[in-house]
């Protein structure tokens, strides 16, 4: 899901950085001091998400968790994901400094979108489960789409890798959707105050 250093044109890097900075600045301005620990702990969870490997056939994938983090934090997901991406970039080379803006936008914005999706209310259990599935599936699908569009915007030479990036993320979308659906159901039974902002 991360775009590596050295791949994108400067116009895209600067554009992504400007848009992400605007979201981060807004999130930071509205962030209260007592909310900092909550954002920090979910930033850490996003960081740790890359260590949670889920089996799929003979291979395994790691969870993205942008859906569930976005569903809990809303616009503050930009802060949580941006900080985690910066640390992942300098420590592991997943993304980097120049691509931080683009990667934050691609991963955090779908999370914020699903935060508002969760506010749509259904009385039907099946429809609610579909909604929860879409929190995971939709956030990764949107991220993958934005990733592919970013690569495609980089020039005609990147059309092939843009298609490949989207297709290779399809299994991750499905698994993230299933896991998010079960996780939200689990949290609603065990710790319902988690979604106070989005599900209340």
């Amino acid at each position: 899901m991360h775009i590596s250093e050295g791949v994108l044109n400067p116009e895209i890097l600067i554009g992504g950085a400007v848009i992400s900075t605007a979201f981060v600045a807004y999130a930071l301005k509205t962030l209260k001091n007592e909310e900092i620990p909550l954002v920090a702990v979910f930033s850490a969870l996003f960081f740790i998400g890359s260590f949670i490997h889920v089996p799929i056939g003979p291979a395994s994938i790691h969870l993205v968790l942008n859906g569930i983090i976005g569903a809990i934090l809303g616009i503050r997901a930009f802060l949580a994901i941006g900080v985690a991406l910066l640390l992942q970039g300098v420590l592991f080379g997943f993304g980097g400094i120049t691509t931080l803006g683009v990667n934050t936008l691609n991963i955090a914005l779908p999370g914020v979108i699903v935060y508002y999706l969760l506010k749509v209310k259904f009385d039907n259990i099946l429809l609610n489960n579909i909604k929860y599935f879409f929190v995971g599936f939709g956030s990764v699908a949107l991220s993958a789409l934005m990733l592919s569009l970013t690569l495609a915007l980089n020039g005609e030479a990147f059309y092939d890798v843009a298609r490949l990036a989207f297709v290779s993320n399809v299994p991750i979308m499905a698994i993230e959707g299933i896991i998010t659906m079960f996780a939200i159901n689990f949290l609603q039974k065990v710790y319902p105050k988690v979604f106070r902002g989005s599900l209340a």
Partner: peptide, 27 residues
């Protein structure tokens, strides 16, 4: 297996809230 992983994510979210709450109170 996916249900188990979902429960792990759920448990981690609960732990996150508890830890954040403790830190907030300490602050």
């Amino acid at each position: 297996t996916y249900k188990i992983y979902a429960n792990i994510v759920g448990m981690l979210v609960v732990k996150c809230f508890e830890r954040a709450d403790k830190l907030k109170k300490a602050m």
